[in-house]
Amino acid sequence: MTRPILQAKDLHVAFNGVKAADGVSMEVRDGEFLAIIGPNGSGKTTLLNICTGYIRPKSGRVQLDGQDITQLSPRAIARRGVARAFQIPQLFSAQRVIDNMMLALAAKRGLWSAVRPLETAARREEAKALLELVGLADDSERISSTLPEGHRKLLDIAVALALKPRLLLLDEPTSGVSALERFQLMEALMGALRHQQITALFVEHDMEVVARYASRVLVWNAGNIMAEGLPDKVFSNAEVRERVVGVA
């Protein structure tokens, strides 16, 4: 078995008495594309928030390469190679697409120059290459708020990829994207992940997407892991089909 990059151990989190994580332990293994599925409000996004330092669990811990990161800030965790793409794209909406990318690249390498311009030939080329990888090369000069939702999602992912993370956490990458665009988006995403050898964890509601792309599935229900394993095995579980997939 490949070694785990991220491990969550015995996590407890509750919001107004509702348990989002009730003693959950899980791990993300090097090189996999792990899907987390589950009903709305079951605590999937909370797990991403804990793993990226946005929420502190009541108890339990999160380890990255065996080191405890439970109390670290999102900023510190990002610096350790964990990037995040959001359900609602988090972009610099008044800036051009290329500026979003170049700022992300600068954040990785050298934000602290107050004299050299953000836009250098090398940085622009690198940004263009990443945009090409996710299929946004033609949009590079557009103001990011004018992009259609599917492209905004891709840009959000591309910005995260610019950090050259070891682990990428994606929150519903295909939500808000048209049925026609979702597989294009996933193909672009998978291509980029393979190209950069990035491990990923993604929360997803679209079972077709999960079945087609996930290397392993973890089923989250009422703050606990209900089932986990290969997609075929998980989707053949009757309880999962009834409660999560919606097919009895």
Binding site: F92, S93, L103, L111, S113, A114, R116
Partner: peptide, 14 residues
């Protein structure tokens, strides 16, 4: 126009 300046504008947006 530097990365720092762009980061400053980005504070306003996100």
């Amino acid at each position: 126009n530097s990365p720092l300046g762009h980061a400053l504008s980005a504070v306003h947006t996100n």
